[in-house]
Each structure stands twice: as C-alpha cells, then as structure tokens.
C-alpha cells in the first residue's frame, strides 16, 4: 500500500544496494566463467587461449576433487549437527532459572567474537599440539596416548574448532526463541499429562522450527566458505581440503587460474544447489 511517489522513491533508494550487489556478483562471475574456458597461467605465459571444457574435465578428474566435496559436506554437516544439538540443549539449560544467567550467557557467546585466525591458532597450538597442547596433558593424565590431532584427526579437529566458534550463535538464537515460547502452553500440556520428553518433542521443537531455519541458513552461508580455520591449521593437508581450499591452491599456489576458475564454477554450482534448497525452507518460514 503506497503511492506512486513512494514507490518510485523506493525503487530509487533500493537502486544503490541492488546495483552494487549485482555488480559484485556479475562482474567477477563473468570473468571467472571466461577464465574457466582458457588455459591461463599468470606466471608461465599468461593467457594461452581457449581450451573449451578442458579445465572442467581436468578439475573433476583430479583425484582431489571428490574428496574435497566430501570434506566440505562433512565439515558443514558436522558443524551444523553439533551446533544445533548442543545449542538446543544449552539453550534449554540457560532458559532454566539460575543465578548469574547474564554472566553465563556472556561466557557462552564469547567465542563468536574471536577472530577465526586466532581461534584456529590457539586451538591448534595450545590445545591440540601433540607435545605441549592442553589436550595432550589431559590424555596423558588419564593414561592415554596423546593424539596427533592435526594429522590423525584433522577433520575432527577442524569441526571442533569451527563448532566452538558457531555454538554461541546457535545457542543464542535458540535461547531467544525458547524464551518467546508461551509458558501457558507448556503448563496446559503438563496438565494433559505429557512427559517432559513429549513436551519437548511436540511443543518446544515445533516452536523452534523458525529459529532452527535461521541457524541453518546463516551458518551454512558462513560455513561453506570457511577458509582461515584450514589455512592456519592444516593448510589443506591430511584430508582436510575443502572445495574452497582446493580452488585456493589451484589459483594461488599452482597459479593455474583456468583450472581454479573451473573449480570456482563448480563451487558456485554447489553453493547454488545448497542455496536453492535453503531458500525454499527460509522462504516458507519467513512468511510466518
């Protein structure tokens, strides 16, 4: 409901944001598409002409391609699962009456404000180092053999670090949602004889569906592109190479822009598949 005046004003005012994002999306995208059909080696001759789908075929047939896709999905899926489950439990706990709730909340959300490079470095060296890391002391204390975290359990390590960073976000969103739950509804169901578990399943969880969607959407956006956590920990070694990191290596380390760009197009396609899937859910949930 508005007038012609306000509608044209609205279009005008939306224009800068839309144009900027459109440019930000299209210009590099078109360049990437162009490079992906070329043999392009900046340090070894530069633009060496069109090569059709060669880069695409080479990128997929490379032995690192499918493992990197798997790694990406495992990391994203693993972090989502851990943060959602632990986040829900933690949110339920924080919703209970207690002393010092505010302080606990601050303690819990603090990791979100730590730079990814810092958290990766701190975890890698001070906790997961096989010789001096705190976790090694802990393992030794219980008489176990310390784990070579970065090499023997690289994915677990990365998932742990990233989950630690994102758990605060999931917890806070879910806690906010739980606090908005109508307590009369819970009391009514208690009167009806529902057990705690049933109440959680039939009342609390459905109420959280929108919050869970938001967590899924926003975390996926950020998780698909995690970089620093891998860059400073394993640098892609020991089976921790995500698609993002593989492309990064092709472009910057082996300086093969054509091949990297083809990989970029694959990554864009993968992201779009996830995006379409997510947008469907979010679109529905936004209307609520």
């Amino acid at each position: 409901m508005a007038t012609q005046h306000s509608r044209s004003a609205a279009r005008l005012m939306m224009a800068p944001a839309v144009m900027l994002l459109l440019g930000w999306m299209l210009v590099p995208l078109i360049m990437t598409l162009m490079f992906s059909f070329k043999k392009y080696l900046p340090l070894r001759g530069g633009d060496l002409g069109w090569v059709g789908f060669d880069n695409y075929i080479r990128f997929v047939s490379s032995s690192s391609f499918w493992p990197s896709v798997m790694t990406t999905l495992i990391i994203v899926g693993g972090v989502l699962l851990i943060t959602l489950v632990l986040g829900t439990l933690l949110a339920l706990l924080l919703d209970q009456p207690m002393w010092g709730q505010g302080v606990v909340r601050i303690l819990v959300i603090a990791p979100f404000f730590v730079m990814p490079t810092v958290s990766a470095l701190v975890w890698k060296n001070m906790f997961m180092d096989a010789n001096y890391g705190l976790l090694s002391y802990l393992w030794e204390f219980f008489g176990a053999e310390p784990i070579q975290w970065m090499s023997q359990a690289s994915l677990t390590s990365i998932i742990t670090i990233v989950s630690w960073q994102w758990l605060p976000f999931a917890t806070l969103i879910l806690l906010t949602a739980i606090q908005s739950l109508d307590h009369e509804q819970l009391e009514a169901s208690e009167m009806d004889g529902a057990t705690t578990l049933k109440r959680f399943w039939h009342i609390v969880l459905p109420h959280l569906s929108r919050a869970i969607t938001v967590v899924l959407l926003i975390q996926t956006i950020f998780l698909l592109s995690i970089f620093a956590e891998i860059f400073v920990t394993t640098a892609g070694a020991f089976g921790s190479k995500t698609l993002t990191y593989l492309i990064f290596q092709r472009v910057l380390e082996s300086q093969n822009v054509g091949l990297g760009s083809a990989g970029g197009v694959y990554a864009i396609i993968l992201a779009n598949i996830v995006a379409i899937f997510l947008m469907r859910i979010v679109g529905q949930n936004l209307d609520k």
Binding site: V18, V27, A267
Partner: peptide
C-alpha cells in the same frame, strides 16, 4: 521484496574463492 531480500542473501553464498582471481585482477 522478498525475492530481492533472498537474492541479496544468496549473493553471500557465492564462494569467495571462486571469484578471488577476478577480484585480484580488478
């Protein structure tokens, strides 16, 4: 409106690494 909002959010899903080199060149 909703489409534009979702489209804007979806630009965040573009993998940065996919467009790193073009941005680098620019």
């Amino acid at each position: 409106t909703k489409d534009i909002l979702l489209w804007m959010l979806s630009t965040k899903m573009l993998p940065a690494v996919g467009v790193l080199y073009p941005i680098y060149l620019i």
